[in-house]
Design a protein around this nucleic acid. Sequence first.
DNA 1: TCATTTTCTTGGAGCGCTCCAAGTTTTTTG
DNA 2: CAAAAAACTTGGAGCGCTCCAAGAAAATGA
Lengths: 345, 345
Amino acid sequence: MPTLDDVGKAAGVSRGTVSNVFNRPELVRPELRERVEEAARRLGYGGPDPKGRLLKEGRFNAIGFMPPGAYAIAEFIRSPYGRELLQGAALACDAAGATLSLVNGTDETRTGTIREALVDGFILGNVVDINLVASAKRRRLPFVILESDAGPDVNSIRIDGRSGAMDAVRHLTALGHMRFAILSIRRTAGSAIIHLPGQAGRGLLAGFALDHERLQGFRDGLAQAGLSIDDVPVIETRPGDPEAGAAVFDHCPDATAILTMSDWQAITVLDEAVRRGIDVPGHVSVVGFDGTAESTRTTPPLTTVAHDVVGKGRLAAEMVLENGPPRQVVLPVELVVRASTAPPR
Amino acid sequence: MPTLDDVGKAAGVSRGTVSNVFNRPELVRPELRERVEEAARRLGYGGPDPKGRLLKEGRFNAIGFMPPGAYAIAEFIRSPYGRELLQGAALACDAAGATLSLVNGTDETRTGTIREALVDGFILGNVVDINLVASAKRRRLPFVILESDAGPDVNSIRIDGRSGAMDAVRHLTALGHMRFAILSIRRTAGSAIIHLPGQAGRGLLAGFALDHERLQGFRDGLAQAGLSIDDVPVIETRPGDPEAGAAVFDHCPDATAILTMSDWQAITVLDEAVRRGIDVPGHVSVVGFDGTAESTRTTPPLTTVAHDVVGKGRLAAEMVLENGPPRQVVLPVELVVRASTAPPR
DNA sequence: TCATTTTCTTGGAGCGCTCCAAGTTTTTTG
DNA sequence: CAAAAAACTTGGAGCGCTCCAAGAAAATGA
């Protein structure tokens, strides 16, 4: 690839002049300009390489988005939650004239990615591996983490998952439900993990912050109705696992209410219900989480623990772009009652 | 921000040694390494800046995605078509270990964006402004354009929109439909444009390649049934305009079949039908375009002119990443008949 | 102890560009 | 027509890094 120098040589002028021809053409006498442009054409010069400029300018004018532990970018875009989050981030980037870089990376390579990504800051999707936060700090770029809190010196945005989950349970117990099933999120590769009541080592409340918090909310909500989460089957599936619905119906045949951790999971359950001819909400009630646009369009429309996902994505990008003092934001949630819940059969 | 040199100075070693500490630590004696690391910590050095390396290496290891003329990135992600396309591109980037950069830009700034984006290649969403192709050529990076054909020296991927559109019309005329409405895409900002039959200067077949082609298909399909597109009202709305459905029902009250240019538009029509208590397909049939995953989940499920959108996105990214000789790919379409079409009332 | 080998460290060159002070040429002015 | 002003062009410095040949130091062997 020819460089400014090559073009300059070919046109019999200096590098600086060639640079001017491309960046400040008004500074260069027309006939000279023409000569330089002609030389550039002849050599197949594609214009000043942004790499060079970059080094000088010092900014990529881009922020990186790293999807949550369990996802690849492609998978994340597929999820209703993921695409609204990206939408919001894209909105903010657009407004700021910045680029949104979708960086991939398996759990093992993410640290390296953080070290080397060509960005001015990061949005770290729900962080599973806490070492990522350490890596991000080390890079000394602004970043924000989603759905975790890593202390007062780290930007974070999360929702109050516990109270949202409690609201969902309260709604269902108020309708008279007593027999629940919980669809939780598996944060590693693989198919559904079934935790039946009474099973040893259910370790449900270990895991990852987001899931932990929501499970706590479910637990506490159940407790308020005199029920124990220990009697509730919990199934962990990967976010977009199409088998999730099947797993629930197979393993929790007498649940009258199914609590989930995302609208996507709830949709899977709805789909499986159609397949099996199970009536929702007549036979079983289903509650989603996140309140994405999808949840309004299902059949029946989904009762869900909603928050402003697009707004969250936008805020995240804004925080990174602004690079102000660290903030920990907790967004409100609201139970939106639609037609997927009703009194038990 | 401190640099390798600063750290070297602070630790009393050379720049090269500091670089080794970070990149090939095994080459550096442990105690020296420790001394350097300690100096780095003390200075708050965030590790070798990728900018420097970049210049040496010469590749960004990223491809840029530029959305179609009418969209911003955020809007594009909202559309069922857009997110499947991005999904596919993300898939290919992930497999290649590359980053997918979502570059924004209004119509006026896109040329500049193409000149300066920090990427090794481009996917240009449906190109409205043909000058973009010239800009992309000038940059001398691999690129592919979608839903247009810019000749044998430019990578392109498109579907056979004309035959897909014809299939849609044939399906409807076979069912007995005689009165149509067409929902087309407005490629500029603003609300719906109504082209009623007989109106002067309908200029329907001008516009942008994709729309042009599909309109041709509609025209030719109608002609086969002895109908003229000149008698069919055509409404142009922006891709995600929620008013699209309303415009159709307001201005084409006696259409028994509505042809659209995207599933997204068709979904809008379905939503409006629900709102107005209009039965689909009892009262009116609706046909989508693209065959996105969304189209299976609507009520009723959508009859649509389908193609593999995810595959298209993946292929696009692969073509850019491979940087082989230019190819012009035409993907097959297939009319998928579902429950949104039926014989006319 | 000195020669040889092995291990470690150095600093210059170069990646492609932009910026800018200084120099050169052209134009204007008195 | 010379001097002053304006217009244009030049080339070095520097952005932060990696690579690598060469040099220095330490370890090993005779």
